[in-house]
């Protein structure tokens, strides 16, 4: 038995496939590679592969995390070398480590994620910074931002997600369209999507900015809580 934790990047064309599609893609790549994947016990055994946090459709990512259990020792290096041969270019394995099987799952550790929302090159959004800044200020000053969610029993529950928005800043770099950086609560104890934040901004400034220009969401990092501070999960694999 060996538990391997790994990081990978997801690039443009593959941003368009769902979390389940990514899972299927990994599992089929693993089967082609003939690596000895371990299966769960029970009536309907399934391969022991999990990803730390599902990626929303359309979002690219710099450093996603996953873990897999093998029935025999494979070793992180061999894992990367062999599995990489079976993965499309847009899904790149970055790093792998052999992890303690007793540790809690990555999915249980994720508590925040950092996103970049950027307008594509060539879209002229100059003059919008002020507007966006004010909207952000207004949003962050609110006590409550309500997200309506359907519970399992199809009841609507209201969640105040304002505390989930840890950071929201506008970055303006030379000769680059403006960029929004978000640090958002994520994981099993609740979270908020970057698309919801953009929706909220739109409700303040109107739809023009985000509807008329092309923009893209990129997930940069996942974080774990380490004694009350956020630390990159990739450093704590």
């Amino acid at each position: 038995m060996e538990r391997i934790r790994f990081s990978f990047a997801r690039k443009k064309p593959l941003a368009y496939i769902s979390h389940l599609d990514i899972m299927r893609l990994f599992l089929r790549a693993l089967r082609r590679s003939a690596l000895p994947v371990a299966y769960s016990q029970g009536y309907n055994p399934h391969p022991r592969l999990t990803l730390a946090l599902p990626l929303p459709l359309g979002v690219t990512a710099a450093e996603e995390l996953g873990e897999i259990v093998f029935a025999e020792v494979v070793g992180p290096e061999k894992f990367i070398n062999i599995l990489s041969l079976q993965l499309p270019g847009a899904l790149e394995l970055l790093h792998a480590v052999s992890a303690d099987p007793e540790q809690p799952a990555l999915a249980a550790k994720v508590c925040a994620a950092r996103y970049r929302v950027y307008f594509s090159r060539g879209s002229d959004v100059t003059g919008n910074e002020k507007l966006l800044e004010q909207a952000l200020e207004y949003l962050m000053a609110k006590e409550e931002i309500i997200l309506e969610k359907k519970s399992k029993k199809k009841k609507t529950i209201n969640i105040n997600v304002r505390p989930y928005i840890y950071e929201a800043v506008i970055i303006k770099k030379e000769d680059k369209p403006l960029e929004l950086r978000l640090l958002l609560k994520a994981g099993s104890s609740g979270g908020v999507s970057p698309f919801f934040v953009i929706e909220q901004l739109t409700s303040v400034i109107g739809s023009a900015l985000f509807n008329d220009h092309d923009w893209h969401v990129h997930r940069e990092k996942l974080y774990a809580d380490h004694n009350g501070t956020l630390q990159p999960l990739s450093e704590r694999m």
């Binding site: 064309p13 368009y16 496939i17 599609d21 893609l25 089929r28 790549a29 359309g58 079976q86 499309p88 847009a90 092309d214 893209h216």
Partner: peptide
């Protein structure tokens, strides 16, 4: 690319699948 960002199931039109 812009069109693909706006349609349902863009993966229908991507190509580049395995094999």
């Amino acid at each position: 690319e812009k069109v693909l960002a706006r349609v349902q199931k863009p993966a229908r039109y991507l190509g580049n699948e395995w094999n």
